[in-house]
């Protein structure tokens, strides 16, 4: 069953690609939850906002750089670098958004009842949806040139299977971000300070860490990752107003599977959810929606604290 095997491989890779996007959203959400103790319901809308913003940035880049013609290695490299730059710029655009949201809206309510921060992030969700609608309109917008441009580069054909090069690109990019994120939290001083704050807020303050700064930094980092995720997600699909909900809810599933605030757990959870969802699409379509939730329910019954427990001690 060569074709069956090929389907399996292709679907696994597709799932991996979606899993990486999901990880980018879920990691921001889980780190914000672990450190700020805030469930950011507006996180999915930051993802959607990034997707919309990226369309314009992609448009600018593809307008300035010609799509690679097959065979031309120089133009190919320039094009890929251009697209990478566009994705990073989208993330950077989201940073000030995150800083403003955290310092203006969230900071005054850390001390209050949890219900207020939930309705606050819900209010931000409603507002961001309408701001997006106001700026980009009610119709889905696409950017086809990026997807088709990158797909002209032959990669998977070399192995004898048909698989869009863009997805390979997205997987590689996702893997790089994952490694970078783990490096940041495990090796850099700032990352260690963030983790120290997660483990014990009072102690961190006592040794001179400004928790205000850490909180803003973490929220901005979450927004940055969500922006990148939005930009990566747009080319094969489209930017729509509803696109924020699904990653948000699946991120919840990922957090439950991986464990509250655990980065490693978020990674494992995201890959599991992404791949499983993708398998279901080709082998048992009705199970696509239910499968992630089924795993979530099992994890809740068997290991309620999630696969990797609490984050902080290790990255």
């Amino acid at each position: 069953m060569a074709s069956g095997l090929e389907t399996l491989v292709v679907q696994t890779l597709n799932g991996l690609q979606f899993g990486f996007v999901l990880f980018l959203v879920a990691s921001g959400l889980t780190v914000i939850l672990g450190i700020l103790d805030v469930l950011n319901l507006a996180h999915g809308e930051l993802f959607a906002f990034g997707a919309y913003a990226s369309v314009g940035i992609f448009g600018y880049v593809t307008g300035a750089i010609a799509a690679p013609v097959s065979g031309g290695i120089g133009t190919t490299i320039v094009f890929v670098i251009g697209i990478l730059a566009a994705i990073v710029v989208t993330g950077l655009v989201l940073i000030p958004v995150g800083v403003v949201l955290e310092s203006v809206f969230l900071r005054p309510i850390y001390e209050r009842d949890q219900v207020y921060q939930l309705v606050l992030t819900f209010a931000l969700l409603l507002i961001i949806i309408d701001v997006t609608k106001f700026v980009w309109g009610d119709v889905p917008i696409r950017t086809n040139s990026v997807y088709s441009g990158i797909n002209q580069i032959p990669t998977s054909e070399l192995l004898g299977i048909t698989f869009p090069t863009y997805n390979v690109f997205a997987i590689v990019l996702g893997a790089v971000v994952v490694v970078g994120l783990f490096y940041f939290f495990a090796r850099t001083k700032t990352g260690r300070i963030v983790r120290a704050t997660a483990i014990n807020r009072e102690m961190a303050t006592a040794i001179g860490v400004s928790t205000d700064r850490v909180f803003t930094l973490v929220f901005a980092l979450g927004a940055f990752l969500a922006g990148i995720a939005g930009a990566v997600r747009v080319p094969p699909t489209a930017a729509t107003l509803e696109m924020g909900t699904n990653p948000l809810v699946l991120s919840f599933v990922v957090i439950v599977i991986g464990g509250l605030g655990s980065l490693r757990g978020a990674f494992v959870g995201a890959v599991v959810v992404g791949v499983l969802r993708s398998w279901m699409i080709s082998f048992y379509p009705p199970g696509e929606i239910a499968a992630p939730f089924a795993i979530m329910a099992v994890i809740l019954l068997v290991k309620p604290e999630g696969l990797f427990g609490t984050w902080g001690e290790t990255a």
Binding site: Q114, F252, L260, P286, I289, L300
Partner: peptide
């Protein structure tokens, strides 16, 4: 029975996830 294994924000997250599951089922 499933959500109340946790409290606080985790509980909020679980109830939202189960609610969306029902939504997805009705939609599908």
């Amino acid at each position: 029975a499933l959500s109340l294994r946790h409290t606080g924000l985790y509980f909020a997250l679980l109830t939202l996830a189960f609610g969306q599951l029902l939504y997805a089922i009705a939609l599908g």
